[in-house]
Amino acid sequence: MRYAYYPGCSLERSAASYHTSAMKVADRLGLVFQEVDDWNCCGATEYFAINLLPAYALVARNLALVPGDLAQMAVPCSACYVNLKKTDKYMGKYPQLAQRVGQSLAAGQLGYRPGGVQVRHLLDIIVNDVGCDAITKGVVKPLTGLRVAPYYGCLIVRPENGFDNPEYPTSMDRLLRALGAKVVDYPLKAQCCGGHMTQISEKVAYELIRRLLHNAAEYDADVIACVCPMCQLNLDAYQGNVNRHFGTDYRIPILYFTQLMALALGLSAADAGLGSEIVSAQPALAKIAVEVPQEEDKKARKRADKRALPMPTMPDEEA
């Protein structure tokens, strides 16, 4: 099965572990992903707040760049997914918008006909095209004993994206079960991580993140599995800030579903892109006898003794 592949900006660096694990898993499952040449940013949730037509034109350039022999596009980031899917859908639904986006693309010698590319989330392709039965057959190292909370967030299932229930999705639940994990069913699995709110109002963002961590912790999750780099960043990189803000002590590792798939399919920890999480996954993954690479160790040893250079410390950073 061949697909155009649109990684999105996050997968280049901040979510490189998602890209690495997705590529390795795809290869193992026989999926061929051809990266869209010279793709550009989808505008995230920002461009629509500034200019309407340029926002759609920006997204549409990516659809226009898909080679004619590829009918479907695989998208791992939920925010990119919703923008690409929505642009295609709105161009089909609103002829005036389609015409003006078309005129804009023509200024760059490009063109796109709505419906020309079927935009699909990576999770959809794995669960529905490959299928859980085929995946179960490939599992060589089942995630037995690992309690995984599938976290869907918003944009993979809303608005009306077709392949799963918008309020109570279950695709990833089935996939994780196929990998041998104990799936934690918790009420907030499709609630919002706050998106860009960490940059705009920390108070609002931290509360949204806290609710999710609290709910997953209430149901004894060892790890949260996610499908979007924004969700991963918020839950992982801001978990420490949330703990400081609320006086809590959550230490829940946040991994991409493809990382757990890689492990179950017998790929190495490096192929699974492990080791770049801010909240260490080691205590949780010890349950399934996985060693997380510790690249930090070498650097840590090189650092001078703290006593040698009296540096000012922030109160909340004191040991």
Binding site: R13, S14, N51, P54
Partner: peptide, 26 residues
């Protein structure tokens, strides 16, 4: 520390094409 922030921006090749599209849209 975990190599998750790029120190230099990544850019597409055809920035002039993108600019032409966005200018037209504006």
């Amino acid at each position: 520390r975990r190599d998750r922030l790029a120190l230099t921006p990544s850019s597409i090749r055809n920035t002039s094409q993108l600019r032409a599209i966005l200018d037209k849209a504006k």
